[in-house]
Amino acid sequence: MQLFSTFEHTTYIELAIATLEKKGIKKEHIFVVPLDNRKEEHKVFDTINRSDGTSLIDIGAALSTAFAVIGASIGFKLAWGPIYWGLIGAAVGFLVGFAIRLFTEIILKKKRRQLKGYHSEVIVIVDCEEEKAEIVENILFKHYAIGVAKVK
């Protein structure tokens, strides 16, 4: 029987392996694989096939509406009239909102991702007899395994 478990990259992995060896699991039956971190940057613009659920035009739409109302109101006193100034206000509001959202996605969220420090997880595969499977599972969970799966 094989047990697959995932861990965060901490010293608890070493403690779990040492405990498994004390319970009679040989080193040859324990396999540890660290996962690689993502090398490429996250994409800001979505494609047809992939979307991250973040909208870049939400603030632009709100500011477009607000600036259009202000532009149309002021446009009654200006030479081009309220329709042109409402459209100009809408365009300016949309561009300002889009720029704000783009700035937050590229600059601020990138810093947040770096500060949060996403670390790769580690997969531990243990090959053991069915009788020891429950003991191995308990040891892995006691040493803060994120998840454990059994395969016969």
Rank of each mutant, 00 (worst) to 15 (best):
D46I: 03
V92F: 03
S51G: 13
S51Y: 04
G75Y: 05
S64G: 15
G60F: 09
V92L: 09
I48H: 08
N49D: 14
G60L: 07
P82H: 12
A68G: 00
A90M: 15
G60C: 05
G89K: 00
I107Y: 14
D36N: 06
I48P: 05
F67Y: 10
K39M: 05
K39R: 13
L95D: 09
I106C: 01
L87R: 02
A62G: 12
L35D: 07
F67T: 01
E105T: 11
I59L: 14
A91N: 15
R101C: 13
G75H: 10
N37H: 01
T54L: 13
G89E: 01
A72F: 12
I70L: 08
L63T: 02
G89N: 10
R101K: 15
V44Q: 04
F67C: 00
K39H: 14
F76C: 05
S64M: 15
V96G: 06
N37Q: 09
I59P: 08
E105Q: 09
I70S: 03
S51A: 07
R101A: 14
I57N: 07
F67M: 02
I70K: 00
T54C: 02
F76D: 11
D52N: 09
G71C: 07
G60D: 02
D58H: 11
D52F: 04
L78E: 06
V96W: 03
R38V: 08
L95S: 12
G71N: 04
L87K: 06
F45R: 01
W85Q: 02
A66W: 13
D36Y: 01
V44G: 13
G97F: 13
I48D: 03
L56K: 11
L35M: 15
L78G: 06
S55C: 06
I74H: 06
K43M: 04
E40C: 06
F98T: 08
V44M: 07
A79K: 12
S73D: 10
L78H: 03
G89H: 10
I57S: 07
W80T: 03
W85R: 01
E40V: 01
F67G: 01
I48S: 07
S64V: 00
D36Q: 14
I59E: 05
P82E: 08
V96H: 09
R38Q: 13
D52C: 00
L102N: 04
